[in-house]
Each structure stands twice: as structure tokens, then as C-alpha cells.
Amino acid sequence: MHRFTEKQMDDIVVAHREAKDWSDWIALGTVRLLRWGTDLCTGYRHDKEVSKSETAAAAAVEKPPKFTMNERKWLIRFIFLESVAGVPGMVGGMLRHLRSMRKLRRDNGWIETLLEEAYNERMHLLTFLKMAEPGWFMRIMVLGAQGVFFNGFFFAYLISPRICHRFVGYLEEEAVLTYSRAIADIEAGKLPKWTNMPAPDIAVGYWKMPEGSQTVKDLLMYVRADEAKHREVNHTLGNLDQNEDPNPFNSNYYNPEKPHPTKSITHMRPTGWERDEVI
């Protein structure tokens, strides 16, 4: 697990990659539909002006949102989202693993990155489960959502891996926005229980959180940084030739001083690296 500096986490921004072709529009439209369904299931509401801002924290201070989310509502949303967020990486890694064995050739470094993403998302879930125990209704929703999403993503990845990676890129854009709003609520004093609450021990150990920076707000900063990285990775993978191109996040570069994709959040590209920049 790569450690993030405080400045790197503060520099994370809400961003959106504009759809450029029909496959991008399919991915974006699917994310918007799922976003609507998730908002409905978790009781999530927000002020539209905040959603339009690149800095949700500033917007929340300048114009208080009409709708409020308490600590319990945020945790329900986090648990529901993270319970399915680990599916894409696992499905993609599994299918590429099987293809590699079936074709008797290497995978160009994609499998490792996808499985790392799945593991990272599962750690998010395990961390939030230390803060709240979901009831039977939430467990049923998670079971149903995961079952539908896993099978849907499985068949979609068989048909078009590129659309699937673009879909995950757009999904992670929403995740960055969601955690930015939660952080903004803490900074605005709207979540008093989390103001000085310590992060669970599992989070402190996993992210190696330093002394003095181990609160729930710090935890959300780390989670948001992870989601921003997944956003960059999947938008980049969506720009590549799915069968031939190497994974730029797992490659060596002739000129390491020049900005290039890395496993950390150094040289972050919120909307992904274009193919001609990394191949």
C-alpha cells in the first residue's frame, strides 16, 4: 500500500472526463442510472449547486446544502457502495487471468493492478464495517446488488473491456465526489460525532496513518485518494488497446524524470492518460 502525503490528498480534485464517442456515452449513461438507483436505496440527497462545484468543500461553506446527511446515513452509503466497488477489479483480473492461461501468453501487467484495486476496495468496506453494523435490510440490498452487478459486469467485460474500464472510471468520479462531500460536511461542522472520532485500528494499520492524523476525516481523505487513483487507472486503461498494450502503471520508463503513470498518486491525471502519452 502506497502512503500518501497530506498535500497529495489535499490536492485531489473532483473531475469529469467528457464522453467522446458512443462507447463513452454508454458507460456514462449506465453510471448515471446506477447513481440514481443507489441514491434512492441509501436515502442520499444533496444540493445541486454542490455537485456542480469542483471543490465541494468550498461550495458547502459558501452555500449550505438544502439536504442534510448525518453520520449514520453516510455510513450506510459508504458500506453499500464499497460492497460492490470491489467487483470490477476482481472480475476484470479474473477474466484476464483466465485468458492469459487460455492463450498461453502473458497479460502485460494488467492482472496485478486490477486485483490490487479489488483488494483496496474491500479494505474500504472492512474499515467502514468497524464503524457501523448494517441491519438485515442493508444486508439483503448488498446481496442483491452484488449478485446483479457481478453477473452484469462479467458479461459486459466479455463483450467490451474498454467500455467496462470507462464505466469504472466514471463510477470512481462519483466516488471522489461523494467522499469530497462527506469531508466538506465534517469541515463545516455538520457531522459532530466525526469531528474528533479516531479512525478504526484496521485503517490506521492499512494506510499507516501517522500520529496526529488518525481521525475519521483523515480516513476519508485516504479513501478519497484511493478512489481518485482508481479513477485515473480505469480511464487510462479505457484508452488503451485491451489486447496488446502493456499496463502503464506497471511499466518501466526510459525517462523516469518525465511525468508518467505511477502506482502512487504522483503525477495524477484525473481524466486518465491518453494512449499516445504512455505507449
Rank of each mutant, 00 (worst) to 15 (best):
M1N: 10
M1I: 09
T5G: 02
E6S: 13
V13S: 11
A15H: 13
H16I: 03
D24A: 05
D24W: 12
L28W: 13
G29E: 09
R32K: 15
R35C: 00
L40K: 03
L40N: 00
E49C: 07
E49K: 15
E49S: 14
S51Y: 08
S53P: 07
A56N: 11
A57L: 14
A58R: 07
A58Q: 07
A60S: 07
A60C: 09
A60F: 05
V61T: 12
P64H: 08
F67H: 13
T68E: 15
T68H: 13
M69N: 11
R72I: 08
F78W: 10
I79W: 01
E82S: 00
E82D: 11
V84W: 01
A85I: 00
V87Y: 00
G92Y: 02
G93D: 06
M94I: 09
L98P: 03
L98C: 06
R102P: 00
L104A: 13
I111S: 00
E112T: 15
E112C: 10
T113D: 09
E116H: 10
E116Q: 12
A118L: 07
E121M: 12
E121Q: 14
H124S: 09
L126V: 12
F128G: 00
K130I: 05
K130S: 13
A132Q: 11
P134V: 05
F137Q: 14
R139D: 11
I140M: 07
M141Q: 13
L143T: 15
G144C: 00
A145C: 04
F149H: 13
F149R: 03
F150P: 02
N151M: 11
F154S: 09
A156M: 11
A156N: 02
A156D: 05
I159W: 13
I159S: 04
S160C: 12
S160G: 04
R162C: 03
C164Q: 05
R166Y: 02
F167V: 08
E173H: 05
E174K: 11
V176Y: 03
V176A: 06
L177A: 14
R181W: 03
A182F: 06
I183A: 06
A184I: 05
D185K: 10
E187F: 00
A188K: 15
G189K: 14
G189I: 13
T195V: 10
M197Q: 15
P198Y: 12
G205W: 04
Y206H: 14
K208E: 10
P210S: 01
E211K: 15
E211F: 09
S213D: 05
T215G: 04
T215I: 04
V216H: 04
K217C: 01
L219A: 04
M221F: 07
M221S: 13
A225D: 05
A225R: 14
N234L: 01
N234K: 01
H235G: 02
G238D: 04
D241K: 08
N243T: 11
N243F: 09
N243E: 14
P248G: 03
P248K: 08
Y253N: 06
Y254D: 12
P259C: 13
S264G: 14
R269A: 07
P270E: 06
G272R: 06
G272N: 06
W273L: 08
R275I: 01
I279G: 01
